[in-house]
Amino acid sequence: MSETMLQVRDVKTYYGSICALKGVSIDVNQGEIVTLIGSNGAGKSTLMMTICGSPRAREGSITFMGTDISRMPTHQIMRLGLAQSPEGRRVFPRMSVFENLQMGSEITDGTMFDQDLERIFEMFPRLKERRDQRAGTLSGGEQQMLAIGRALMMRPKLLMLDEPSLGLAPLIVKQIFDAIRELNKRDGLTVFLVEQNAFHALKLAHRAYVMVNGEIRMSGSGAELLANPDVRAAYLEGGGH
């Protein structure tokens, strides 16, 4: 098996006195798409934010490519080659699409800027059409594409996506998931995907974790979990498709 890129071990995160993550361990290996599914409030986004350093893990360790990042400030973690498309997209609404993408490349040396930009416009042609438009005027799907594109401009080794399908039409969801698959297959980009849309996420992922109440309940390959009757009952039947 290829080497472990991101290693989360027994991480506990608290909001005040409330324990949101009760000792979570996951691994993301180089070249994989790993997904984390779970219902509302299970702690999926908390885990992703904890990896980014805000909020901090009270216990446990988080290692990215051999470096312990559990005590590092967020902006330094992001400079190690980790990129995140945060929940709710969070594009810069008053800045143009082009400026948004440029903000992503702020931590790179800028030599590959034109190539990176071209690649993202190729992947999401809609962004090219709208590159001078304010990001706040884009549709939800276009904003999601922009958020992913902005994260890719950081030239990451690991791309973390928090609910990219949230509130989007099925056709757009398919487009975005196709793009993720393509990124992984063609460029070998490692992807960590947090999703509520379990059906699509499990079909896409090499490996998957199921989170319930701040704990990892199950793990396995995407296909295994897709066939698992418990997973089907909890997350798929009655509206996954």
Binding site: T74, H75, M78, P86, E106
Partner: peptide
Amino acid sequence: LPVGRAWEALREDEIACRSLGINT
């Protein structure tokens, strides 16, 4: 310049700013 762009990005969204590696 980068610092001015970071100001504007900070005005728009502080969390997104930090997740792009900007020292807020």
